[in-house]
Design a protein around this nucleic acid. Structure first.
Lengths: 113, 113
DNA sequence: TAAAAATACTCCATAGGTATTTTAT
DNA sequence: ATAAAATACCTATGGAGTATTTTTA
């Protein structure tokens, strides 16, 4: 199961159909159809009940949808965190005691809080 | 960014090297090398500092690791939830008032709580 | 010099596209 | 008759492997 599978799956649910989902995803209808089926195969779970055209979420589909939303949101958050230009992480600084006392308080006060 | 990328990334961190990660993943060393580099390219972020053999996590890598762990755990949880054989979801049941009063309390008590 | 990462290449699986058919409004 | 999903088939991207080279401990 990949994030791209979940992106396609949620698009189908949100758009209420494969064709419209494909349009939004800038993909082709047959591709979306196939990806959804493959996802169902891999998970060994039916995600939609096909009543002709209508695609209706199964309870399992509903369950997956909840997780998919959370996973995609978390993935977005991760990517955003990495784009942060603000320096992060541990910063070690060494100096002589005398220098530290005189020189460091000013510059370091920038990072207070 | 796909879950398989994150699986590879975390394996490299946990095993402390590409070769050992490759072994654990039943993949080949060059493949793991490439996947890690591609991930860095896509995210436009260096995840490791290469000091010769040694791979050392950058702060950004550290950040991604946290998210990766959460994402993979959540994905596992999702798959597990779908394998649950216990029926889930909304269950609608119609009956005549008289039937309901006499016939339903017994069977339905199974689902109490 | 031994062990690990990087590089260059080859191959194949599969994702994505085109065209058509089926199905249900 | 229309619109959407399924199916069959083709193409090509990129993931995975083999072999080799580079690097540093």
């Amino acid at each position: 199961m990949e994030l791209s599978d979940l992106k396609i799956f949620t698009a189908v649910v949100q758009e209420g159909g494969i064709t419209r989902a494909a349009e939004r995803l800038n993909r082709v209808q047959s591709n979306v159809t196939t990806r959804v089926r493959q996802l169902e195969d891999r998970l060994q779970t039916k995600l939609f009940d096909r009543q002709g055209k209508r695609l209706i979420l199964t309870p399992a589909g509903r369950t997956l949808l909840d997780y998919a939303d959370r996973l995609l949101a978390l993935a977005d958050e991760a990517e955003a965190a990495l784009q942060e230009k603000t320096p992060r992480g541990l910063f070690r600084l060494g100096s002589r005691e005398s220098t530290a006392a005189v020189r460091l308080p000013g510059p370091l006060s920038v990072f207070a809080q």
